[in-house]
Design a binder for these strands. Structure first.
Lengths: 246, 246
DNA sequence: CGGTTCGTTGAAACCAATCAATCCTCGTGG
DNA sequence: CCACGAGGATTGATTGGTTTCAACGAACCG
């Protein structure tokens, strides 16, 4: 429930230049002097407990956030109270970009485990990206990739059936873990079945059934939150040839 | 089928400063001297016939495009050939932003009626937005609004039922026509039932049935491509209180 | 005018939601 | 340490909305 957490200005902080997420994150591709200028505007190491809100829908956008460690979900809310998970976010990803247009955050973003983020004041980022073309270009790429990702989700929600969606979801998670140096075969689901269902436009029972079915088929092994991918090829085969094209 | 159309450099062109879409489009908020600098990089009045591709998925992104007149759809394609409409675009909207991340367009964008676009070379736009903070900020807002729009579509695809989706779609079109000075009550659907269905994650038969049902209820009047909204309130009421929450 | 694409409508099949019961897991406090 | 409770997960039976299949009608274009 804690919403606002004081930002501890860490002088012994790990700088972007020393951060292992450098290549995934905002500073990717910057020269070292450019990176140190970015370092100056970033407030590092804001810690969040599981369940803490990073920001809430409707609040004024002042900063973007980069995930340093941990796991987040973003939820959009409909007028009538229906809520949907719009995305899950892990280390190196930039959060808050949906709020730039209106100056207000469009979604709630919540920590799903104890996490740390870097806070990047947006006004200063705009200023700096005028001086550093590489930063400007990379920021544009990050914004654009979010749009491209959303197109992928639209394709998933609009034209895949239940088990196909889940297969695509698991493969996506697997890839992202791999890109961060974790195992692509074996990982923990940080979110509940209900949250997976919300993201995939399905009910939690459907997720549960599909996971059980994959397990029966020997494609994965599931136990609670832990998933092991035993046959990635068959998982890939499920995406896109699930007989009926809806 | 025509893909590449030579760009006619028009000197007698209508400049941004004279364009009625100014407030909706990229130059919104610019001072007149700033606008004329933008004018210099924009190639105006590229005409397209119905069915022409503005760009194709996989082609190199060189420019963004602003719709001057006409109507477009963007289609994302799945590996297996399944195709989905990711958006419909009308006057004043900026196209091509999904391709900045990879340098290649992620979708096909096709003219649904004879149209005209302004071409904005992306490299020059980035250069100019470093010099003109207002332009930079507005461009960021446009990118972000596209993300926010996508979140809305995800909500629609993930948690609304068929008639609710269609109601939301009609209201969205209505609003966008109104913002451009056209009637919000009566307009033409530039796209086929199949394309509407693809966008909404439904089959064309479902669209047809839902339209007929709305008409039976006296909410709208449809005849082929022409739609008249007779009871916008009931249409609004349908979105978000369609009993079952999926 | 003839062919093709697009749209409408009906009946049946099917997939995922809903309703419901039970079990598991984990954190908490006695 | 164990009992307890609450939230999360699994599984089954049933319902219902949307797709699918099919046939027909209307509009459009060469």
């Amino acid at each position: 429930m804690t919403t606002v957490i004081p930002i501890v200005s860490q002088n012994l902080r790990a700088a972007c230049s020393a951060c292992s997420l450098q290549e995934l994150c905002l500073p990717a591709g910057l020269a070292s002097d450019e990176m140190s200028r970015l370092d100056e505007i970033v407030n590092r190491k804001r810690p969040l407990k599981r369940g803490d809100y990073l920001y809430r829908a409707g609040s004024t956008l002042q900063s973007l956030f980069a995930v340093r460690t941990g796991f987040f979900k973003s939820c959009v809310m409909h007028d009538d109270g229906r809520e949907q998970v719009a995305g899950f976010h892990m280390a190196g990803e930039l959060l808050g970009m949906d709020g730039i247009g209106s100056g207000k955050h469009m979604c709630d973003t919540v920590s799903l485990e104890d996490s740390e983020v870097c806070e990047i004041p947006f006004g200063e980022l705009e200023q700096l990206s005028r001086d550093i073309p590489t930063l400007q270009q990379h920021f544009h790429r990050i914004l654009s990739r979010e749009i491209a990702r959303d197109y992928g989700v639209m394709l998933l929600l609009g034209s895949m059936r239940a088990e196909e969606r889940l297969a695509a979801f698991l493969l996506n998670l697997s890839q992202r873990f791999a890109a961060r140096g974790y195992s692509s075969k074996s990982f923990l689901l940080r979110m509940t079945r209900n949250e997976i269902g919300s993201y995939l436009g399905l009910k939690l029972e459907t997720i549960s059934r599909a996971l059980s079915h994959f397990q029966d088929e020997g494609i994965i092994a599931v136990q609670n939150k832990s998933v092991e991918i035993k046959d990635a090829d068959r998982l890939r085969a499920m995406v896109g040839q699930c007989a009926g094209h809806q």
